[in-house]
Design a binder for these strands. Sequence first.
RNA 1: GCGGAAAUGGCGGAAUGGCAGACGCUGCGGUCUUAAAAACCGUUGGGGGCAACCCCGUCCGGGUUCGAGUCCCGGUUUCCGCACCA
Length: 952
Amino acid sequence: MATTKVPEAATSVTRRERYIPQEIEQKWRDVWAETQLFKMDREGDGGRPKWYAITMYPYPSGDLHIGHWYAMTPPDAAARYRRMLGFNVFFPMGFDAFGLPAENAAIKHGAHPWEWTMANIENMRQQMRSMGTMFDWGQEVITCDPEYYKWNQWFFLQFLKHDLAYRKEQAVWWCPGCQTVLANEQVIDGRCERCETEVYQREMEQWFFRITKYADELLSYEGVDWPEPVRIMQRNWIGRSEGARVSFSTEAGAAIEVFTTRPDTLWGATFMVLAPEHPLVETLTTDEQRGEVEEYIAQARRQSEIDRMSTEKEKTGVFTGGYAINPVNGEQLPVWIADYVLVTYGTGAVMAVPAHDERDFEFALKFGLPIVPVIARADGAVRSVVRFEDVRESGAFAEGLHGLDASVAQADDEFHISLHVSRADDYVALLRAEKKPGSWISFAGARNGLVFDDAAIELASVANDTEIVRRVTETRGNWFDAIRRAISRDPRTAMEILRTQPFYTAEPDVTYHHDYGAMINSDELSGTPGEDAVRVTIEWLEARGAGRGEVNYRMRDWLISRQRYWGTPFPIIYCDTCGIVPVPEEDLPVLLPEDAEFKPTGESPLRTHEGFLTVPCPQCGGQGRRETDTMDTFMDSSWYQYRFLSPHYDEGPFEPEIAKRWLPVDQYTGGIEHATMHLLYTRFFTKAMRDMGLVDFDEPFMRLMNQGIILGEDSEKMSKSRGNVIDPDDLVFEVGTDAVRLFLMFLGPWEQGGSWNSRGIAGPQRFLDRAFSVVVDTAGSHVEDREDDSTRALRRRTHQTIRDVTKDYDTFSFNTMVAHLMEFVNELMRVKGTDGAHTRAWREAIETLPLLLAPAAPHIAEELWQRLGREYSVHDQRWPAWDEALAAEDTIEIAVQVNGKVRGRLTLPADVDETHALATARVNERVAEHLSGATIVKEIYVPGRLINFVVR
RNA sequence: GCGGAAAUGGCGGAAUGGCAGACGCUGCGGUCUUAAAAACCGUUGGGGGCAACCCCGUCCGGGUUCGAGUCCCGGUUUCCGCACCA
């Protein structure tokens, strides 16, 4: 393979040579490039099993930061390890080159997105080379290249053909900052994932991918090895709920469809609530209520999504004046509208069961609606039924509680205050107090156990604060005043103590509870046990045609339209006669025009581009208009793993024979932040491709690993404004690539990430220094054929290290991998000065070291390999195997415990038997001391580890 | 609120239920040096003792076990995801 000339090693070492990484690293990178050492072996000659590893490609922001190093160099080591194990490894890199920053740069600085992006790519590619990774740049993928995005368009057309893409008018998230719509997955806490601007919903006609068709299949991870946290996040995101769809007829004619997970509570429905945007609101609203309803809808629309989502917010809503009929008992239910019902989930309407749903309960309390329990508590107790008819007239908290009887009791050092609430309005006042912002006492604990009648709220353990206790004791029933006075004396301390006090309820009588207990108050189904209730009710509903079982998902279809320029144009033409017309495949790609005016106007800049916009209709030849939105960039990353294999192939998105050889991807790595975006979309894509007959497997990535985040030295996110950014280029200049790579691996568990520590890098630096001198100083020394205890010990350490490092690579345990190498080198340092450094065992050790070092620190490994006089390249060598017999210890140290405390240590032959070990332990001086005068009740012997004498 | 992860020296972290603190950083002492840096050697959880040794110690409270950082129950704190999802 290596026909290119490899630089010669320094022949005579006259002085002790120092390790100067800057000198050797660039040299070897050049050699690897020249000899095409890491060129992809596409055809897979020699029958090596393939290993396809990818680490998520970056956005070409222009600057490679330490986070990229952290994401890329440990997986590079893992890929190199696989290569040495004998796999045909492919580990590519590319750029996720479409997206907003390029466009923003264009708007801000007038640079064209293409030029800006390509310049950044060039820059980052250069920086990436200094990481010493085995990327084959010949396989690079750049998504903004027409040769790439042509296939985005092609996929879109296939999806359209297979009814997986559709256009629909729907309320979608709008980001005013980015001036585009966003997918649900890109909205985090009501803000844009990218620019953190508050988003809102608006009705727009957009393109969607039918990802929900695969909702159930996406819940299964059969055959793939993915981290549990990612799987759980995806599962939560998909949000599968089993329940029933029930139809409530109305006087106005149209029925209200409702989805519920608790059909067994149907008899407890006492009102209905529609989302303000629900289409039936218009028809159901009576003339008397119309004004109020319209005002509410207008106000709901004005509210920002963040306000609306707040769970702290008090429930609001208005009565429409309309009624619906409960199909199970014919009761008339008033229909309300309220913004706590989401138009995007289920049917946008709920049946309200205040006795068993917290939100409905709050709503019922506030508006004085009836509460009818229909499920017994799981413990079997049936509570009294209370109706809050007169609640609306209740007094406000500000005026103080009335009808309260408080009593105080002291038991040991605990202080109990019982509040007997005997009137409904006091109870409501308590609830209000909890909600009141800035109210001077927190009733947080009251939430889950609300009290009525003679039940008690107990303020428990107001201990440790004698002042409050004393005052409360003095004033007895008037404890509010006592606390108030304590607060005025020392507000901070008093509030602090009060805030920590849980409020207990003794026996809550009226509350919501969502137990799955037996059904009550439910006509003929009363008495149905909780475990059967849902199923039996669904059967009952289906038998009567009143409803049917249904599964609902939280996940929506994937919205792929974006009102921006820098993305893939949709291959779609709108024609007044023919409607939506796909661009014929042979006309692809639909090129993104270079001369668009990109200004954020809320419409795609393409809309104002006449040359792009107006085209003849491919069907009738009449005048047509192109779709001017572009595709979400997650489209690009959904299938880039296929394109890497043959990035310039022009007869399809990928080359079938090559794909067959290499797919699916064996090892994928990247940040967990993509759990519900990219990682979900790409799974969907592969499943869709499978169903279109393009591939024959179900999952794109067999094994996934997620790295953590590297924080700044101050444990804060690295950012220019904080000034805590670590520049990898500077580091490489100072300490060299290998040291940076090792340090990042050594930091801690890779999944956990960690804070940067600029002092810590000295460790790996010193380690490489020593590794260098251990090999270089002794590479030329004579070798004696000698065997004794010390050579056996050295070989043992060598083989143990091989074993440990191998295991660490298999489990992505990079930090312990480095630690094991350090221990090995420390041992070599000890032996180096002795005559042990002139033995075969020594030679074996120093030849093993570069091999074990090669994946993590590829440059120094190559240098040392050459210094040892071995043939280029160390990276073509076979990963060393360990000999279990050589790795085995011949003596073992056993800890001897007496009653679980270590009292002595024994060094025994590894093959010692239990009897002998115990006998030796008993006569051990210190152990005997602790045993004397006691009776041995039990003797525990753990082979190779310890002995425990249990004595009395 | 729901779901997940985590908590171990001054710091990052290690530890199939079996000697807690591997490895590294920092600190301290030493060798070399005119000196410093680098390098190398020793030491570095807390407390007591001249010493041999002893006691305490893995977020808090219980439990299981001969033995718990590890398993079980209850709680606290931090981080992450979702969040009025019917």
